[in-house]
Write a protein that binds this DNA or RNA. Structure first.
Lengths: 369, 369
DNA sequence: AATTGTTATTTGTATAGACAATTATACTAA
DNA sequence: TTAGTATAATTGTCTATACAAATAACAATT
């Protein structure tokens, strides 16, 4: 029996639930006609007004459409809702680093599905991320692409859970949250840094300085790759050459670090900058100090940002497919929006070395493959 | 009388309209209790079920809340709707030129009001702008910030009208649509180019080449400013030194143009690049050709993009307050969203000259102020 | 002072029946 | 063939009535 007249649950609501069940089980399919009100009266024994109340609610909820004289029909939920969704995107700063490229990749993929992206700048701060998260939830975003902030893993997890608690899927882009299994699209920063460092070693460099921030999983992994490459090549790790700091990227910091490094110039022949922006900054400090790159010191970066803009430096670097990262993040979030409940995925994209002219091979020391 | 029983308009709908009218006229104010169903039965002579139908619709539409035993109350529409709005932003490419800075300014101002921004890349193409416009309308944006595309004025107007026909206000950012009076936030490109050109003249340059696209109002105005400055200083305009093209920005074009220019090197001493990206490209062509800037040729740009990134060139340029342009665009669209019906405004922000070292003063020719 | 019970008020759910409006379809007339 | 017309099916609007459920406010009890 469809309706239990002794239940405390309102009968119109019982009917409503039953109808939704039929829809979800595919008994009534998209564009099908459901039984007429008269038929439902027969089937349930309810008054027509009660039937109408249930059906009206489902019309309001977007499950059904009524057509005069024709009957009541099932709306194609997928068509109506899967498109036209809005996806939130939380990234550090749309002006800086790889963010524009990432946003563009995501937006291009979104456009294909007639989706839209709401863009939020976190400046890598937990509080801003939280603020934007609440707004995105209020705006009923269907999913979120999140570049974790510089805050602790717990705090980043907290942001993710704000969404997942409301059944809004989240995909992390670029940076992971260690110890938590969440969908992720990134590159292999360990491997990339390993390759980059090994390339320096092959060109005869043994004393390689590195400078980066420890706040982000990506840069920490690059540090590990660097260390491993040194170890594997029998080079002792010199902690004086590892200049980490635990703050956000700021010109002031890295200018200081660059100065400190150059003061002990004789101790190293190459610098591994944590990312391209650091590399460009180091280059400009070097110019100020009259140090030539690559003549005096070799320099590599990581990211391969917009090389056309600052091709005066001609930086050797590890190219990350940022645009593709945006696309893949969007594809993954879409599969979650469509209801893919499988366990968390990590999509790891391939980086590749881009050799330009900021590395000077040390004569007589170049190893052959 | 509230209800006209002879009208063909359903009585529940008449009542509904009457209630909305009362709400809008402030007869029932926010958080007020409206008459009970019993009272409305008395007032209208309708059956309670009909009353309920009208009230239920208004509950669904978010005008009212029902509270058992207490009555039915007016929701504070303003609180619910004025904030939480979404503003659309149509710009050429979030990766390129001033777009990131503009987007960030707009987003920061939006955040203050708990608004969100949907970002769309038009690539300066009419068809993409149209596609995104439809999506923005579907997403019920409350307003739109639009950087006109490279298409004709009529086509850009058509995009604007798509929105205004649906009562969605539009603010143009940076570029205007000549001949159409629409809210605009920009800088004075004529004056800026005039100042920039005059500065070159003061430093002894008389033969100044210029290269830019004629597709955008901004660049056309810069050309006019350049011409006027030459005329006012008694310098004849040499059409051989004006290299315009009527396509979108593309490295290929400007590389060609730069090569053409440098072939007739002796005819000029300075180049006015239509914007910074062109300037950086010209610089890199010059480097390839072994031409020194500023030693052989002086170079100025327009925009003052991210100078920290490519400070090898140290470009003299006209600084445009792009971030502020984003903020002001957002403020203006918000005043329209809040219902400001006054006539179209043009907000013109101040640019200023940034003198760096890409201009070489020609000895003995420098004029004094 | 705190708890429990009662009452009146108001919205919530439900029935049975009537007529109106709309429109796909079939039929009819030009 | 086309245009108009009737008809039947179906949803849309409306009435009158009844009882249920929730709860603020008050009263009674402990």
């Amino acid at each position: 029996m469809i309706i239990d007249r002794n239940s405390p649950i309102p009968q119109y609501f019982q009917l409503q639930r039953w109808l939704v069940e039929q829809l979800e089980q595919g008994v009534f399919k998209a564009n099908d006609k459901i039984p007429t009100e008269a038929e439902l009266v027969q089937m349930t024994g309810l008054a027509r007004a009660t039937i109408r109340q249930a059906v009206q609610n489902l019309v309001n909820l977007g499950y059904l459409v009524r057509k005069r004289k024709l009957g009541t029909f099932v709306l194609d939920k997928a068509e109506e809702s899967e498109n036209q969704t809005i996806v939130g995107m939380l990234l550090p700063d749309i002006r800086a680093g790889y963010a524009p490229e990432l946003a563009r990749g995501a937006e291009d993929e979104a456009s294909k599905n007639k989706q839209s992206i709401i863009l939020c700048n976190t400046d890598d701060l937990f509080l801003k991320a939280e603020f934007h998260a609440d707004r995105l939830i209020d705006n009923n975003v269907a999913g979120v692409i999140f570049v974790p902030t510089a805050a602790s893993d717990e705090k980043n997890k907290y942001i993710v859970e704000k969404f997942t608690n409301k059944n809004i899927p989240v995909v992390l882009a670029d940076r992971e949250i260690p110890g938590h299994s969440i969908d992720l699209v990134t590159t292999d920063n360990f491997k990339g840094a390993y390759t980059l460092t090994e390339n320096l070693i092959k060109q005869g460099h043994k004393k390689i300085a590195i400078t980066l921030s420890t706040l982000f999983s990506t840069e920490r992994q690059r540090l590990e790759g660097y260390k491993q490459a040194l170890s594997d090549n029998g080079i002792k790790i010199d902690s004086n050459l590892i200049m980490t700091h635990d703050g956000l990227y700021a010109e002031k910091y890295y200018t200081e670090i660059a100065h400190k490094l150059f003061k002990q110039k004789k101790k190293f022949t190459a610098i591994f900058a944590g990312h391209d922006r650091i590399a460009y900054l180091i280059n400009s400090v070097a110019m100020d100090l009259g140090i030539g790159i690559p003549d005096d010191i070799s320099l590599v970066g990581y990211d391969d940002l917009n090389p056309s803009y600052h091709n005066q430096l001609d930086l050797s670097t590890m190219h990350q497919p940022i645009y593709e990262m945006g696309i893949e993040s969007m594809k993954l979030i879409n599969s979650r929006i469509r209801g893919d409940k499988s366990k968390a995925k990590s999509i790891v994209l391939e980086s590749h070395l881009v050799e330009r002219s900021s590395v000077f091979p040390i004569k007589g020391e170049v190893k052959k493959e």
